[in-house]
Design a protein around this nucleic acid. Structure first.
Length: 210
DNA sequence: ACGAGGATGCTCT
DNA sequence: GAGCATCCTCGTG
């Protein structure tokens, strides 16, 4: 269980978003008394600094190669491997990990995981429902994993919350589609997910080969 | 299965 | 005051 290091995230955002599909998301109990919560990531989305759907859109000035440090989106230009966690629709926390070298904007949204360990505790947090409904959406998995603003701008390369790289089995294929729930740059195929996996979020635009 | 509508709070204009 | 990187419940087929 070696966490993905900062260098893993200091890469092209599309590559990181692709490679995180199949990786594990691990949430350890700080006290160490209980087994960790573990989910295998089956769906991600990429957001980049030249992307109108990006929260830090237009903070980067190409002419002067500088970044305006105003507002929420500025945290997307911080060091790779940090958390970017924000409240969506006033209701749900969404988990992103910052990508690209510091000073370049980028993040990967974790949209769905397949529970692997700690399922009983996920269900106790989420309510008694089908296993696939515990974590098949970006707001659902943060509730199942007890992730909120406390992880904003904290390191996601060490306990208690980190990623572990893992390859997909031969039986599974990564495909892409347009991203979910955005109104700008909707044509960019920057959603990555495991084809046919039942833990992928319900909204599923037509897929293309990754 | 599928669609409509409401909850709820932060950010930016 | 509008617009969200969403989810849940409750209708109707």
């Amino acid at each position: 269980m070696t966490p993905c290091p900062n260098s893993y995230f200091a890469r092209d955002t599309l590559e990181v978003a692709h490679d995180l599909v199949g990786a594990l998301l691990v949430r350890e109990d700080p006290a160490g008394n209980r087994e960790p919560l573990v989910g295998r990531i089956v769906e991600t989305e990429a957001y980049t600094q030249d992307d109108p759907a990006f929260h830090g859109w237009n903070l980067y000035d190409e002419e002067t190669d500088t970044v305006r440090s105003e507002g929420r989106g500025a945290d997307l230009f911080t060091a790779p491997g940090l958390g970017y966690v924000y409240l969506c629709y006033g209701v749900h926390w969404l988990l992103n990990v910052v990508t690209e070298p510091e000073g370049t904007g980028g993040a990967v949204l974790i949209r769905a995981v397949e529970p692997q360990s700690g399922i009983d505790r996920m269900r106790s947090r989420r309510g008694d429902r089908r296993e696939r409904d515990l974590t098949n959406g970006p707001g659902k998995l943060t509730e199942a994993f007890d992730i909120d603003e406390a992880f904003h701008q904290t390191s996601l390369t060490e306990s208690p919350l980190f990623f572990v790289a893992d390859a997909l089995p031969d039986s599974e294929t990564i495909v892409t589609s347009s991203r979910i729930g955005i109104s700008k740059a909707v044509e960019r195929p920057w959603r990555f997910f495991v084809e046919g996996n039942r833990f992928v979020s319900p909204a599923t635009p037509s897929a293309q080969k990754a």
